[in-house]
Design a protein around this nucleic acid. Structure first.
Length: 195
DNA sequence: AACACGATGGACT
DNA sequence: GTCCATCGTGTTA
């Protein structure tokens, strides 16, 4: 059974904690989420919606339980899951995952490498996610399944947001599986979920 | 209309 | 550690 829409209709940080260990299926590949980041609303200067509603970030403002995919550095497709009540531009970025099924497809999509989906661009490539999917409802093309075993959490500051206000740069809104080595940037992560 | 740069990753020294 | 691919986006003029 996929995660129900109500799962996403909560604060992005709470959803981020609960997404660790959950699974994502798309285009013949199944992965287990090991690292995410929460992007909140309002008052988060790291958020893509910090300048208001635009064509790109429109899915973030819409109803929760949808995908928000954007292109980074002209190359990488970044998968986010939209959270929070409608009108709140919040989302969770999927930063790392362990491949569970469809390993041959993963290899074909990323130069022969099936392991080490440690980084949001790698997750997007492995799942064959593109910006064409931005705004699509979850449990449509992209399916998110609940975790099948308990997890322990780590947390720390988000990565790659040097443009944000100092307080937002240090906010511990990056959450990872404490027992997985599949993490994009281990530095800065400490045991326990953030406050 | 011009411009600077990014929620990155891979190759290379 | 350094370099840079590659292009959509938002900002500024």
């Amino acid at each position: 059974m996929p995660l129900p829409p109500a799962f996403y209709d909560r604060d992005a940080l709470d959803v981020a904690r609960d997404l660790i260990g959950c699974r994502i299926a798309h285009a013949g590949v199944l992965v287990r989420i090991t690292e995410v980041e929460a992007y909140r609303f309002p008052d988060d200067t790291a958020n893509h919606a910090r300048f208001g509603r635009t064509a790109r970030n429109a899915p973030m403002w819409g109803p929760p339980g949808h995908a928000y995919v954007y292109l980074c550095y002209g190359i990488h497709q970044m998968l986010n899951l939209v959270t929070g009540p409608e009108g709140h531009a919040a989302a969770v970025l999927i930063r790392a995952a362990e491949p569970l099924d469809g390993l041959d497809l993963v290899r074909a999509r990323r130069r022969g490498r099936a392991e080490d989906l440690a980084g949001p661009g790698k997750v997007g490539a492995a799942l064959a996610v593109t910006t064409a999917l931005s705004g699509s409802a979850l449990n449509g093309p992209i399916v998110v399944l609940p975790r099948d075993r308990p997890v322990r959490l780590r947390s720390g500051p988000r990565v790659g947001i040097g443009y944000a206000a100092p307080a937002d740069q240090v906010a511990p809104w990056r959450i990872a599986d404490a027992d997985s080595a599949c993490v994009s940037v281990p530095r800065g992560l400490v045991p326990g979920s953030s406050p």
